Amino acid sequence: MYTPPAFREDDPVVLRQIIREARLATLVTATAEGLMATPLPLILDENQGEHGVLLGHLAKANPQWKTPAMGEAMVIFSGPDAYISPSWYATKQDHGKVVPTWNYSAVHAYGEVEFFEDRDRLHQAVSRLTDLYEQARAKPWAITDAPDNYIESQLKGIVGLRFSITRIEGKNKMSQNQPEQNRRGVAAGLAASERETDRAVASMIATDPQE
């Protein structure tokens, strides 16, 4: 990922936050048959390895897990993003030398991917993922709410995924290369948007409260 110094994100806390909040990731592997990619939800286990381990599952019918990967694999996490209009830049009135751009945050995790069919490991991985996304609900659904024989039949249709992160790249492109007055204009413009993601990006743009 091309990451100019101004946009580089190395803080492990921020990187983990982007991963957790991305919800849907994309697993990419290079194979002898070409690149293969699968969008899927993953859970980050921060207690394993230097950078953590990602856990999830994919359909057994998906050929990606059966196709040997060449070299390391990659998982892409995308955070909030927004179109940036040059009309929000205060310097537009000064010299007009402004163009549109895009603000976004992203994490690329690299490492080794392991696929497994062990029933107990699969059950544990699915349970953890389900519990993670159900915990905020007033009445969380649990795997135990479904009949055992139904769950067993569903487990036979998937394979587990364990991704050991060996290196990680982060990028937060949030108008850091713009002067204060332009950042203020961008933040104000996005904050007034009807799009939730635009407003999320607005809150991520650093502005000086003293000015």
Rank of each mutant, 00 (worst) to 15 (best):
L24A: 09
L40C: 15
G49W: 07
A6E: 08
V14R: 00
E50W: 11
E9S: 04
D45Y: 04
R8Y: 09
E33R: 14
V28R: 02
P39V: 15
I18T: 01
L40Y: 15
F7D: 03
L24I: 13
A22S: 09
D45F: 05
M36K: 11
P5I: 10
F7S: 04
P39F: 12
E46C: 09
V28D: 01
L27P: 01
G49E: 07
L55P: 02
T31K: 04
L27K: 02
L24C: 09
T29I: 15
A22G: 10
T38H: 12
L40S: 14
D45Q: 06
A25R: 02
P41A: 10
L27Y: 02
Q17L: 05
I18C: 01
L54F: 04
T31Y: 03
I43D: 08
E33W: 06
A25Y: 06
T26S: 09
P39R: 14
T26N: 07
L54K: 00
P5W: 07
T29W: 04
V14Q: 02
L44N: 00
Q17K: 10
E9R: 03
P5F: 07
D45N: 08
A37I: 13
R23V: 13
L35P: 11
V14H: 01
E46T: 12
V53M: 09
E33K: 15
R8S: 12
L54M: 07
N47Q: 14
P5A: 09
T26C: 08
T31G: 08
I19V: 08
V28C: 08
I19A: 00
M36E: 14
D11Y: 11
E50R: 09
A6Y: 05
V28M: 03
E9I: 02
Q48L: 14
T26R: 10
A6R: 05
Q48W: 08
E33N: 15
R16A: 04
T31L: 08
R8C: 10
P41M: 09
E9K: 02
E46Y: 03
G56Y: 08
E50T: 15
L44E: 00
V53T: 10
P39Y: 12
E21W: 04
P5E: 11
D10Y: 05
D11Q: 12
H51Q: 11
L40R: 15
G34P: 06
E46W: 03
E21L: 09
D10W: 06
L27M: 03
G34Y: 05
R8D: 12
Q48G: 09
A6M: 05
V53L: 11
P39A: 12
E50L: 13
L44F: 00
L54T: 00
P5G: 06
V14K: 02
T38F: 11
R20I: 06
R8F: 09
N47T: 15
V13C: 10
R20N: 06
R8N: 07
P12R: 04
H51L: 10
M36D: 13
V53S: 05
V53D: 04
E21A: 07
L44H: 00
V14G: 00
E46H: 04
L35V: 15
Q48Y: 12
L54E: 00
M36R: 13
T31F: 06
P12D: 06
A30K: 03
I43P: 03
R20Q: 06
F7I: 11
N47H: 13
A37S: 14
Q17H: 09
P5D: 10
G49Q: 08
L35I: 15
L55C: 12
G52N: 01
A6C: 07
